[in-house]
Write a protein that binds this DNA or RNA. Structure first.
Lengths: 155, 155
DNA sequence: TATTGTTATACTCTATAACTATA
DNA sequence: TATAGTTATAGAGTATAACAATA
């Protein structure tokens, strides 16, 4: 890319990294208030949208390795948020479901996500927020980032 | 924040996290080709801009703890990129400097950063890139993010 | 023989606290 | 007594590979 009009190099990519990190850490603070890590939150989201999915598929969706989701689900199951049900058709794998408590928490999680969104975009006007959303969506599309994928970036 | 005009919740904050993570990991790939971690790169940048600074100050600038910068500098010093010079006025602390090789590598690092910027913004027109830079700068300012600070987010 | 989920292990990254040497 | 830097240790997070159960 060419330098900016004044000859000073642009740092937009770097700024994007910094703000992305800020957004992720602020969101992690909010999920922590719900007793969840960002990985917990992503897992609840995926199971909520795709009830009955297997651990193998969940691992793929999260961009994680199967052994990684074991302690993740152990923790959520212990807290009564998720259930592992043996598949009757293939007894090797589980069908994952949210419990009632899990669904309720997922609802609160969505509220929290919207609050987070509002706080993050507060410095912008509604028009600017719209424009930013458009530009980021275009950038994501150009780089093949799946907007729906919930690959948690961790902290 | 209010939902988007069509009632579907916006995911701009999440998109920002994802793209920030993408930007950081792509940059890490490029620095790795130079034999540097992102932390190495940030350290070279800070010393290059502030020759003679102490490890304590460097740690503050990097947002790290003093014990963290020890192995970082050990590695850079072993590779002949950085020098630790005992301060003559206060023999407790070091004055950090880049060697000639360190300065040369910092130059290549700047080239790499600009290439990275170009690749990342490639899906946008120049006008859109300008607009994105403006919006992100406004967002950073609103949240008190120091644009010059080089707090590396890690991977 | 292949696949799902599990366990055991190890590796990376980082922070905390104790230590030394100077001041 | 306070500060710069160092070392030792421990913790979080994650991946790799071997394993048991089922297909």
């Amino acid at each position: 890319m060419a330098p900016s009009p004044h000859g000073r190099p642009r740092r937009t990519a770097f700024l994007l990294s910094q703000l992305g990190s800020l957004s992720a850490s602020r969101f992690a603070e909010r999920t922590r208030e719900l007793g969840l890590t960002p990985s917990d939150a992503g897992t609840l989201r995926w199971i909520g949208r795709n009830p009955g999915l297997s651990q193998r598929v969940l691992a793929d969706r999260l961009g994680a390795v199967p052994s990684r989701v074991v302690p993740l689900l152990d923790s959520l199951e212990t807290r009564g948020l998720v259930e592992r049900v043996r598949s009757s058709t293939d007894r090797r794998n589980y069908e994952l479901h949210l419990t009632g408590a899990g669904q309720a928490l997922l609802g609160r999680l969505r509220d929290v996500a919207q609050e987070h969104e509002g706080e993050l975009l507060a410095p912008l006007t509604p028009e600017e927020s719209d424009e930013l959303a458009r530009l980021l969506a275009r950038l994501a599309e150009g780089h093949g980032v799946d907007v729906e994928a919930h690959r948690d970036t961790g902290r």
